[in-house]
């Protein structure tokens, strides 16, 4: 098989990574943008989403599609509520001070992780995908008879993976609509632009913060529910999404939602392609190198706005 089909396969795998990464990172970016705090526990909200997805699917039992559909709704909502509670009981008490919030969210990280270990256990458990048919992908080759279509061995994807990409795109459009077209979106953007003026114009900033923290965690959980039929739920699975989300958010520009999505596609695709042709470790090394370069040469990120 020539190179073309390999690249196509790697791109498809990379697109799935990019889609899930975009959702996770947009949650982190939203929290950073509006609240100006770094949420180190973001990866654990992702993990919690996956574990709850397994739990819900397991409880429902019935047809895999039914269990998955229930998980898709229940897990992000539950994780969002946990995050709202964490915001009101912890972050509000430390006054959203940037340094103390980092320490507080590190604490949350370990609490969530260890509680999961104590209850769910150390096993990795899969959630059955609602549908999962193999789709063979054709390729073209040029021979003496002109262009010919054939099905190379191993060049395939699944309907579920394509659905993940589509679902992520739909949710991202939803987040954009929420920010651009709704009243709560307007309040969030006003709070992001000038917290003190938001207060002086009657915006309940603390409530906005709690909602933003909840939505951010809920998006991470939603991303996890989408990936868990491909990757399995495990109590340590939060590390990679956290690292990659930070990479994406820094490259895209802290607080810039379009920048975050573009950077997620860039990092997700290159991660997929480099992992297929070389090694996953090299992909992470290059992504981290890119972050270093961005921080040196364009600290506000590729799409960020210089702060005043």
């Amino acid at each position: 098989m020539d190179l073309g089909p390999y690249i196509l396969l790697a791109t498809l795998e990379g697109s799935v990574t990019a889609a899930v990464l975009a959702l996770t990172a947009i949650g982190l970016s939203l929290v950073f943008g509006v609240m100006r705090v770094v949420n180190v526990a973001h990866g654990e909200f992702f993990m919690l989403g996956a574990v709850l997805a397994w739990w819900v699917a397991h409880m429902v039992g019935a047809h895999p599609a039914l269990g998955f559909a229930a998980a898709l709704v229940v897990a992000p909502v539950l994780v969002g509520l946990v995050a709202v509670a964490a915001d009101m009981t912890v972050l509000k008490r430390v006054d959203y001070d940037p340094e103390r919030t980092i320490v507080a969210t590190i604490g949350m990280l370990y609490i969530i992780q260890q509680i999961t270990l104590m209850t769910y256990g150390p096993d990795a458990r899969p959630v059955e995908p609602p549908f999962n048919s193999r789709l063979a992908i054709p390729w073209f080759e040029y021979s003496e008879n002109g262009f010919q279509m054939y099905w190379p061995w191993g060049l395939s994807t699944t309907s579920y993976k394509l659905a993940v990409i589509a679902a992520a795109a739909v949710v991202l459009v939803g987040v954009w609509l929420l920010m651009a077209r709704t009243k709560i979106g307007l309040l969030m953007r006003a709070t992001q632009l000038d917290r003190e003026m938001a207060l002086a114009f009657g915006i309940p900033v603390e409530r906005v913060y709690a909602i933003v923290f909840g939505i951010g965690a809920g998006l991470a959980a939603l991303a996890a529910v989408l990936i868990v039929p491909i990757q399995q739920a495990h109590y340590l699975m939060g590390g990679d999404p956290l690292l990659l989300s930070f990479i994406v958010v820094i490259i895209g520009g802290l607080g810039s939602l379009p920048g975050t999505v573009i950077a997620a596609v860039l990092i997700g695709l290159s991660d997929g392609i480099i992992s297929v042709f070389f090694s996953p470790t090299l992909a992470k090394i290059l992504a981290t190198l890119l972050v270093a370069l961005v921080l040196v040469f364009r600290p506000e990120g590729l799409f960020g706005v210089k702060s005043r």
Partner: peptide, 16 residues
């Protein structure tokens, strides 16, 4: 609110 439009700035005032 620099990145919001004139209309949105006024809307925030109206919402109070």
């Amino acid at each position: 609110f620099a990145e919001l439009s004139v209309a949105q700035n006024l809307e925030i005032g109206l919402m109070v």
